[in-house]
Simulated scan of single mutants.
Amino acid sequence: MRAAVSRADNHQDPRYHGSGLLVLADGRVFRGRSFGARGTAIGELVFNTSLYGYQEIVSDPSYAGQIVCLTAVEIGNVGTNPDDEESDKPAAEGLVIRSLSPVVSNHRSTASLHDWLAGRGVVGIAEIDTRALTRHLREQGAMMAALSSETDDVEALRARAAAAPPMLGRNLVDAVTTPARYTWDTPSWGARATPPVAARVIAYDFGIKRNILRKLRDQGIETTVVPASTPVAEVLAARPDGVLLSNGPGDPAALEHVIAALRELVDASERLPIFGICLGHQLLCLALGGQTYKLKFGHHGGNHPVRDERDRSIAITSQNHGFAVDIDSLGAGATLTHLNLFDRTVAGLELDGRPVSGVQYHPEAAPGPNDSDRLFERFAAKVRDHAAR
């Protein structure tokens, strides 16, 4: 079965380099115009409701193994620049949008979205009915898909999507973690003043975003990033003032070696501050004996309301995850601290009487609101307190 060539293919549009095809594993087909890299991408198709920040989204390693559909109507109008890249590691496999802006206008821009995607090897498709696609994913759930600019063979693409391994059970961290340790000392872009280093943290890299490191540096924290496989004994031998467990892609339950290591880390010291973000939060909960489960279509966007159960305050948060923690599986000793008000899933917890906590969202934003900056302030305070002992 081959897709019919749309009438739009007869018109030359400098934004695009030809026709494109998006085929879902269940047989749903969307035809559009291709841009970015030429080729075929296979991945789990999810939608993101953020109104801005397409560069940060595509370069977020948490999207490794996924094709991202953006629900905002026009994408690419501010171009791209090196400062807004969240990582140079593998991230989103493909990008699906309604319309690619014909104009790039921003004083920070150094490349168009088209050229930047091509440089990263990311296949893009535009002129898609993203409203229909998003509704389909909400009703049927996130699913595997094939995105191509090199073939119009619908059945072949559907077969490849259907045969691709699902996100459940996949370890994607090994593909995105750093191969060697490094130290980060750069604050947020546009920061007025950088405080002196008051403490040092080691961050396990499961697919870490640069803005996490920037936010920590804004608080006077210098961070050393280490590979996901780094032995706990090696981390503790460095005598850090705290440990951060980063975000990342894939199924947390598939990382059995990491879970075992984090169990050792938690048991090693009752005073060491530990903070998990997104996948790091999930892995922390699994190390504590909890369980995780797959969400129907996940949480991907910059407008998710989360309530702090301690003071009942509300924060609008940036989220990107396809799994969640079963709070009942943790038993005594762990307290729910944050609740997602969209579906009442776990958005954060802490260990009773210990400086160990995690959140199921992205307090570093990039993109998204800065409502959750205080989480970095709280973690930094615990880290400085530990450093002063």
Rank of each mutant, 00 (worst) to 15 (best):
L236A: 09
P231C: 06
A161M: 07
G280V: 07
P187I: 00
E222C: 00
L279A: 07
T186W: 00
G169Q: 03
I212M: 14
Y182W: 10
V154F: 13
E155V: 13
V266Y: 05
P179T: 11
T186C: 06
A145T: 02
D174L: 15
E256L: 04
A156H: 10
L147R: 06
D267Y: 10
A163Y: 03
G242N: 10
T151D: 07
T223E: 05
D205C: 05
V243R: 11
A145E: 06
V235I: 09
W184C: 01
E264C: 07
R217E: 10
V232L: 08
P166F: 04
V226F: 08
A162Y: 00
D251I: 02
G190S: 01
R214T: 14
A260M: 06
R239A: 15
T183V: 14
C278R: 05
A233T: 12
A203E: 03
G169Y: 09
P187Y: 00
V197Q: 03
E270R: 14
P195H: 02
N171E: 14
A260N: 09
G248S: 08
Q219I: 01
T178R: 04
V243I: 13
A175M: 11
E222R: 08
P227G: 01
E222V: 01
A199I: 02
S269M: 04
M143A: 13
D267T: 13
V266R: 07
T178K: 08
D267I: 10
V197W: 03
R158T: 03
I202T: 13
P196V: 06
A198Y: 02
L168C: 04
V201N: 01
A199T: 03
A163R: 02
G276E: 08
L147P: 02
G190V: 00
E222D: 01
P240N: 03
A162I: 00
L236Y: 14
L172S: 08
A162K: 00
T194C: 13
W189N: 15
M144C: 09
R170I: 01
E222Q: 12
A233R: 15
D251G: 04
A175I: 13
T230N: 00
G280P: 11
R160P: 01
A238P: 05
H281F: 05
W189I: 15
R210C: 12
T224R: 02
L244W: 13
R192P: 06
P165G: 01
D174R: 15
G207L: 09
G250V: 00
L272Q: 08
S148P: 07
R214I: 14
N171L: 10
A161D: 08
S149L: 01
R271V: 07
A180E: 15
A253L: 05
T178W: 09
G248R: 11
Y182K: 11
S148L: 02
I202R: 00
A162L: 03
S149I: 00
V235H: 08
A268S: 15
P252Q: 02
P179W: 12
T223Y: 09
C278T: 05
L157I: 06
R181T: 14
F206V: 06
